[in-house]
Computed example of a mutant assay.
Amino acid sequence: MQYLEFKITCTEAYREILIAELSEIGFDSFLETDEGLDAYIQEDVFQREAFMEIIDKYKEAAKISVQEGVMPKVNWNEEWEKNYDPITVGDQVYVRASFHPTKPEFPFEIVINPKMSFGTGHHATTYLMISHQLNLDHQGKRVLDIGAGTGILAIMAHQLGAALVEAFDIDEWCVQNGNENFDLNGMAAVRMGRGTVREVNPQGKFDIVLANINKNVLLDEMEVYSGLIKEQGYLLLSGFYEHDIPDIEKEANSHGLVLIGKKVKDNWAALAMQKI
């Protein structure tokens, strides 16, 4: 299947926002550049009207210009290896690809071979979720990662001492990639499931539930999340903007969840909630 390529020039502050918005309409690969980003989508799923709606929404504020073309067949592994740098979360977590050297001075080291931009820790929501995880006691806990993507949050939970980790995603590619990353991080016994939280129907109660998805899905599934959490257990949420916090908090409150922590980065937000 042929890919369409969009070379987007924009201000740095809007790069992550555009990646998030475009991923919602079918774009599945991104390369960050000095000028902005390159975005790729299969020709048969491209919706021009939806694309232009996003571009027009941010065009003036982000100073956007777009060059459109057709992408020749490409070795995606080579492309992301050229553009993927390791990241750190404070002085605690080092996230790298398998071709990067190790850094033993970090207490936690996560190896992620993502082949795309999401789920590497580079996106603000992933960074914020890991930051929240570092503040929670995972030792001996049951942890559920909903919409797990590359599996990075599940891997973080495992390294923080969780006794049981379950993870799933709606996308088959994520399931395959997540399992590859579990293997790279000594988690061969954990296999990622496929489906929504209602389809997977996880059993039992969990001490910690992680959901880094998007606002609409979080609002729709909040009642389900609450039902999966033990009394005094925790729910970590991200995938929405700072201005969405009141809506997320209101829905969480209606299902017995109270806000205990908030983090913001690049206009994105992540909340720590507790079941009361």
Rank of each mutant, 00 (worst) to 15 (best):
N113I: 05
Q92R: 14
L37G: 07
S29N: 12
H100Y: 09
D91A: 09
M71Q: 15
G90V: 12
A61P: 00
A97R: 12
H100N: 12
V66R: 04
G90T: 12
E79K: 15
K115T: 03
E105M: 07
V93D: 00
N77T: 07
N75F: 02
E43A: 14
K59S: 08
K73P: 00
I110D: 04
I87E: 02
S29C: 03
M116E: 06
F46V: 03
N75V: 05
P114G: 08
P101C: 05
V70P: 00
E43W: 03
E109L: 03
K57F: 08
N75D: 15
V70R: 08
V45F: 13
E49Q: 12
D28W: 05
P72K: 13
E68T: 11
V70G: 02
E109Q: 15
K82F: 04
M71V: 03
G69L: 02
N77Q: 11
K57M: 07
A61D: 12
F99Y: 15
A39L: 07
E53H: 12
E109A: 07
W76L: 03
F118Y: 03
I41G: 08
K59I: 00
I112M: 04
F99S: 10
P101I: 11
V45G: 02
Q42C: 03
I54D: 11
A39K: 09
A50I: 01
F30V: 06
Q42Y: 13
A39C: 10
Y84D: 04
N83L: 01
M71E: 15
M116Y: 01
M52Q: 14
D28L: 07
K63R: 12
K57L: 06
V70E: 12
I55L: 04
D85M: 06
P72G: 13
M71K: 13
P107H: 11
M52W: 10
V111C: 11
K82N: 10
I64G: 01
V93S: 01
E105F: 03
P72W: 03
K59H: 07
V45C: 08
M116A: 08
I55V: 15
V89N: 05
G90C: 11
D44S: 13
E78M: 06
E32S: 03
E79W: 12
M71R: 15
P101Q: 13
V66I: 13
R96D: 10
I41E: 11
S65K: 08
V93K: 00
V111E: 09
D28I: 08
Q92N: 11
K63Y: 02
I112P: 02
K57T: 12
Q47L: 06
A61V: 05
K63P: 00
V45E: 10
R96H: 13
A39N: 09
H100T: 06
E60D: 10
N83P: 00
N75E: 13
D91K: 13
E81K: 14
P104G: 01
S117H: 08
S29R: 14
M116I: 00
L37E: 09
P107I: 13
Q42W: 07
E79C: 12
P104D: 14
T88P: 05
K57H: 10
Y84T: 13
V66N: 09
V45N: 10
Q42I: 02
R48F: 07
S65L: 02
